[in-house]
Design a protein around this nucleic acid. Structure first.
Length: 713
DNA sequence: GACCTGCTGCGGGTTG
């Protein structure tokens, strides 16, 4: 064990006391590299393979904690993950006498104050808390973090390709700027399988040249079973629930039904079945609208129930690395919208060494079965959909401009431009563009010129001085639900929320007794029967590659032995519907069904490209209706020839800027997909729409190659 | 019909 000998004595003592027989492969590799170089590293290996230790064992051996100042900063996307990792990191640090401090919105203020008095050790933090410190206590940032040696970013894939990621990238760049010597970064992830993503990840860390990837590809056996039960969106079919109950009653299970309302439906109904039969009572629901303390209890129960079985119905809240102990089986109801998500969910089961993961996939609708199958095939091919990085994040720049001015006591226009354009998050935005945006922000009183200096203007103060400023995403308004002082969760106001209406929440049934519109509170009492709650929102986007795989499955003749008989029949049926099309190239050819009055065009492409095609058709006044699940357009009053002409002209969007200008005028709320985009000049809002809401580039590339294939009757 | 994530400072009250 050569890597072992490279570790410092206290760390070796830790490993001996833990009675580890050996180091994991990812740990062996990372110890040698991290200790001997100052490169950035991205550690990729599956869930529960010891990644956290792979980063911390060598870092703790290498860093000199005797020098004052915080030496290691651990950044996590979730508070829950910080609380979880705190115990792990702290137990390691006991051997070194290095303090570990949690710094997030719910962390102890006293501990934060102690850290400010004597900055040292390791800090666990969220990106938003770093932002808040930059804005409110810029001197503390320097005081605490100017001597950082290592930054560890957990679940790094969850940041990549998102606004929150660009935000973090900017914060890292700003931290690096105030640092006396350059700190190194170690990113951790289980969800990177495509080597194309390495480039994006390296750029994300701001220094591609000195960033290396260490990856453990040891495969993990997975048993997958697909089952089909016809159902409706309104309610899950009873036979499915019964089958699900029988399959899971003697296990520790996580169920992912994709939507919060359905999560509640599954939890309540399985619990009802279990009560009737006299099975265990440990049925829970876990999603963003379940009260935080209830969620923590559920996590605690799962982690500490070695002997008892349980069943947690959940959304992506249990997708990331929160430790909930051993899970025997993962159930997915209807298709995941991404392969990345499927990987994370599969990773939650069989965490014990050498134990296989079990995956049970239910479908209630033919196209959902097809999508589920497509995701599974791509997963087996070790493929993950590419992330789309916004190279010109003007909206995040607005936010970071405000933050930078607020955190500088004195800053001139050229200094601000210089600081922003040197930030790696905005490297592709030109100096002219930056200046234009600053001038605009000055014109709308977000900034004010005082001689040569820029300060926050009157309207700027209004947005900067609220707690909503620190994040890049908007939160919807919810009503807090409680029963006799016990908090249960929260619900959005909808026609469903009326007195005496009964709803599911937190795996229980409630009757609404009082709604207080002033304080936004709902009082409930326990009830016997009810309905699933309705939440509003957009479905997550589906990638082009998944849709293409769906078409590939449709035209192939391959048999899949992991499908049950009904599911096999459904695939045969879908295939027969498409048997009249001659498709020999799934990259270019797309089927078009001509039924005299109207035509159906199966685009088999991403949600964003579909949204763009919809925009083009709308702008040409061609009546169309998009079925997002089938990725199909029903088009009326348009001949096939006309449609072909429209879609075969990649120059179709020459006047797209005018179309988007009109759109912004008639539906200004369309820009709300971006929290900060609404403060940009219209020309930049258009650029943002093209890049982030629609996918103009992708759409043109798709249409350029598109060959429409009609059915032969 | 449709996921998720985070959050300051200050002043006043209560509790140990």
């Amino acid at each position: 064990m050569t890597a072992f000998n490279l570790l410092s004595e206290p760390i070796r003592k830790y490993i001996r006391n833990k009675k580890w027989e050996s180091l994991r492969p990812i740990q062996e590799a990372s110890i040698q590299r991290i200790i001997s170089t100052d490169n950035n590293y991205i550690l990729i290996s599956r869930t529960a393979s010891g990644k956290t230790e792979a980063a911390f064992l060598p870092i703790l051996s290498k860093v000199n904690f005797k020098v004052p100042g915080v030496k290691v900063l651990y950044i996590s996307p979730l508070i829950a993950l910080i609380n979880d990792q705190f115990f792990r990191v702290e137990s390691l640090c006991e051997y070194l006498d290095v303090p570990v401090i949690k710094w997030h919105g719910e962390a102890s203020k006293a501990a934060k104050d102690r850290l400010l008095k004597s900055p040292e050790g390791i800090v666990l933090i969220t990106p938003e808390s770093i932002e808040a410190m930059f804005v409110n206590k810029p001197y503390n940032i320097r005081h605490l973090f100017s001597g950082l040696e290592y930054v560890v970013i957990d679940e790094i894939h969850s940041f990549l390709g998102s606004d929150r990621g660009t935000h973090l990238q900017s914060l890292l760049s700003r931290l690096q700027k105030i640092n006396v010597k350059k700190f190194s970064i170690v990113g951790l992830s289980a969800t990177v399988s495509d080597a194309n993503q390495y480039t994006e990840l390296k750029e994300f860390l701001g220094d591609s040249e000195h960033t290396k990837v260490i990856r453990d590809t040891t495969p993990k056996p997975i048993n997958a079973v697909f089952k089909y039960f016809p159902g409706s969106v309104e309610e899950l079919p009873l036979p499915l629930l019964k089958d699900l109950y029988i399959r899971t009653r003697e296990s520790k299970v996580l169920i992912f039904p994709n939507a919060r309302g359905r999560v509640e439906e599954v939890a309540v109904k399985l619990k009802q079945i279990s009560e009737k039969i006299g099975g265990h009572k440990n049925y829970f629901s876990h999603h963003s609208s379940v009260d935080k303390e209830v969620r923590e209890y559920v996590e605690f129960f799962a982690k500490n129930s070695a002997l008892q079985n349980f069943c947690i119905s959940c959304t992506s809240t249990l997708e990331l690395g929160i430790d909930i102990g051993n899970v025997d089986e993962v159930v997915q109801i209807d298709a995941t919208h991404s392969i990345a998500s499927l990987i994370q969910r599969v990773g939650r089961s069989g965490r014990r060494e050498g134990k296989a993961s079990n995956l049970l996939l239910y479908a209630t609708e033919p196209w959902s079965l097809l999508q589920s199958l497509a995701c599974w095939m791509l997963y087996k091919e070790q493929y993950i959909e590419p992330v789309s990085i916004n190279k010109k994040p003007y909206d995040i720049m607005v936010h970071q401009l405000l933050s930078t001015v607020k955190s500088s006591s004195v800053i001139s226009l050229p200094e601000l431009v210089e600081e922003i354009t040197r930030n790696s998050a905005f490297s592709e935005i030109s100096m002219e563009e930056t200046e234009e945006i600053i001038h605009y922000l000055t014109a709308i009183d977000f900034f004010e010129k005082l001689g040569n200096e820029l300060i926050i203007g009157i309207h700027g103060e209004e947005v900067v001085n609220t707690k909503e400023f620190y994040s890049l995403f908007d939160a919807p308004v919810f009503f807090k639900v409680s029963s006799s002082g016990v908090k249960i969760g929260e619900l959005p106001l909808s026609p469903q929320i009326r007195e005496n209406e009964n709803i599911y929440l937190s795996a229980k049934i409630w009757s609404i007794k009082d709604i207080d519109y002033q304080t936004k509170k709902i009082e409930v009492i326990p009830a016997k029967d009810g309905k699933k709650p309705k939440f509003f929102g957009d479905a997550a986007d589906t990638a082009h590659q998944i849709r293409e795989k769906m078409l590939e499955i449709l035209i192939s003749k391959e048999q899949y032995d992991f499908l049950d008989d009904v599911a096999q029949q459904i695939i045969i049926l879908l295939r027969s519907e498409f048997s009249s099309f001659i498709i020999n190239d799934c990259k270019k050819k797309r089927p078009l069904l001509n039924h005299n009055e109207k035509i159906t065009f199966y685009s088999f492409t991403s949600s964003k490209i579909n949204r763009t095609i919809e925009l083009i058709l709308d702008s040409l006044n061609i009546e169309n209706r998009l079925d997002p699940q089938k990725s199909a357009f029903e088009i009326e009053d348009c001949t096939l020839e006309e449609l072909k002409t429209v879609l075969s002209r990649p120059d179709i969007g020459q006047n797209i800027d005018e179309v988007l200008t009109d759109l912004l005028e008639s539906r200004p709320e369309i820009i709300d997909f971006s929290k900060w985009g609404k403060y940009l000049p219209v020309t930049y809002q258009i650029k943002l729409l093209k890049e982030k809401y629609f996918d103009l580039k992708g759409c043109y590339a798709y249409l350029k190659d598109l060959e429409i294939t009609e059915n032969n009757f």
